[in-house]
Nucleic acid binder design. Structure first.
Lengths: 108, 108
DNA sequence: TAAGTATATTACTATCTGGTCATGTATTCA
DNA sequence: TGAATACATGACCAGATAGTAATATACTTA
């Protein structure tokens, strides 16, 4: 099969990678993978301040990685895109593979 | 299973996403997925200039996404990390899903 | 050895973005 | 209605980075 992807699609893919290319946003997503959270809960769980969390959530939402449900004073966020977990797992797997290679090189 | 990933790992994952969060680098990787290429070939295939391609290749190589093989005057680059294709496919899949949702919303 | 070619690197600039503070908005409740 | 709370937003700054032109490096060949 051909891997040829048109430049326009590659730009969209890059844009989505960019959203995930931020430790703060991965921290937030990592918490949300455990279940729905309010902004205040995310502030507590991540150690980031409120404005910062809201800003990251705004981006995550506008790129459809998370959903928001408003109820009274609270805004409940949840992971909308199941591929987030997969992507992180793939990245993690590769990190482990590299670590293993390193170990192999050092060992013996 | 727990999704809890330590912040240190999340930073490494973010760093790797960041490398992929660039249309120019995805263009390069997309070409390389079709097979080994020299820098000049990549310049031709991507439309980017030589300094730019070399710079992106340097980053891709330092993060182990690509390998380099030198032969005479030429440097042959190839994809070193098979997960690149998987990651792009997952992203693509998600883009298609979103497009489908859009279509469903618009249609009837 | 000198010239030519392929690639890497450096210096520079313009642009973008993450963090933060201050403020705005919406909702609840006394 | 007014105070309190949760969240969103705007302005600002500091740091990072993509693109480019110029130059350096390494290899080949005449």
């Amino acid at each position: 099969m051909s891997h040829a992807l048109p430049p326009e699609i590659l730009e969209q893919i890059a844009e989505r990678f960019r959203v995930l290319a931020e430790p703060a946003r991965l921290r937030i997503l990592n918490v949300l993978l455990d279940g729905e959270r309010t902004v205040s809960e995310l502030v507590e769980d991540t150690g980031l301040n409120q404005a910062n969390v809201s800003k990251h959530l705004g981006l995550l939402r506008s790129s459809s990685f998370v959903d928001r449900r408003k109820e009274g004073l609270y805004a409940y966020y949840s992971v909308a895109d199941p591929s987030v977990a997969v992507l992180c797992e793939v990245m993690c797997g590769r990190l482990e593979a590299q670590a293993a290679e390193q170990t192999a090189l050092l060992g013996s």
